[in-house]
């Protein structure tokens, strides 16, 4: 091969390699976009079923149920307008408790039941996941702020 042709081959290989890499990257990007929905979105049917999404809200007081000795746990998430039941099997994060804002990642399996693969609560009692705070604000745009225990988004960590 002449040096010229060799260079052409090399350039061609690089183009193919970069193309393949970009295709992989775009594919990975597409597959890993996680959309966030509020509990009202879920109830009104805006959230897709059987696709990994994230939902967020407050854990309703008194809603956490557990069979003694079992890891299976169920709780109700709310944005003070609509409720969604979440089921989860595993160790809950340290700061998970009733009345706290949490985000759950998992799939909606219909009938307002959400099966979570992961539950996130942040490490501060004042913390509210921003998505949850937003969706709460939207729910209560018409009301006086004092009606709703709107936690501040300030000061995590």
């Amino acid at each position: 091969m002449t040096p010229r042709r060799r260079r052409m081959v090399l350039v061609g290989l690089i183009v193919v390699g970069v193309g393949a890499a970009v295709a992989f990257a775009l594919n990975a990007f597409q597959e890993n976009l996680l959309y966030f929905y509020s509990t009202s979105d879920v109830v009104s049917g805006k959230a897709p079923v059987d696709r990994t999404i994230r939902i967020g809200g407050m854990v309703t007081q008194g809603s956490v149920q557990r069979e003694p000795g079992s890891l299976e746990v169920r709780f109700v998430l709310t944005d003070y307008a609509k409720d969604v039941t979440v089921s989860y099997s595993g160790v809950l994060p340290d700061l998970f408790r009733e009345g706290q804002g949490v985000v759950a990642r998992g799939k909606l399996v219909g009938d307002n039941l959400f099966v979570a693969e992961e539950v996130l609560a942040k490490h501060d009692e004042k913390y509210m996941p921003p998505e949850v705070a937003d969706s709460l604000k939207q729910q209560h745009a018409g009301q006086k702020p004092s009606d709703v225990p709107l936690p501040s988004t300030a000061a995590t960590n």
């Binding site: 990257a25 890993n32 998505e131």
Partner: peptide, 18 residues
């Protein structure tokens, strides 16, 4: 245009490729 997050598998993939 909505709240999304990009899951860790994306980063793992695009990091390992190069």
């Amino acid at each position: 245009m909505g709240r999304i997050s990009v899951g860790p598998p994306y980063f793992a993939t695009v990091f390992v490729i190069p």
